[in-house]
Amino acid sequence: MGRAWKLGDGVSTDTIMPGRYNLTTDPEALARACLCEARPDFAVGVRPGDVLVAGRNFGCGSSREHAPLSIRASGVAAVVAASFSRIFARNAVNIGLPVIRCPEAAAAITDGDELSVDVERGLIHSGGRTFEGEAPSALALRIAQAGSLVELIRTQGWAAVEEMRA
């Protein structure tokens, strides 16, 4: 069980990790600056297992991987959103930060709600309800099982992706 940190529509990677704070690759330093202007209470209050819940087009804008890295380093279990921007979703999956697209959960869950997620099946449990989000693609699952894209390709090569075609 964790708590929801609720955000609105169109949260950009500039909002998640402002350009003035991402001149580092240190995950701890990035976690301290995560959402520092939009939700100054986040970095100090977040606990492992909490979940970010956001509206449409989460992670839009700059491709900076510092954004999903900072969220992962802050200990959240997953990001649930009505929709994700393409590059953010791909970056998150690549580094092992689960993302679940679920417009219903994004609309119903409010800030501070207790919730838990079943990443592999794309389910979100909160307030006695179960929301069915999008289950991860076969490739995303494969990457998650390996831990990251780097681990998957390093240990299994591109054949791991190629054989999933069709």
């Binding site: 590059i87 970056n91 690549n94 780097v150 390709i153």
Partner: peptide, 9 residues
Amino acid sequence: GMGSTDVGV
């Protein structure tokens, strides 16, 4: 456009 991990690979 891609993230750094994709480009690293």
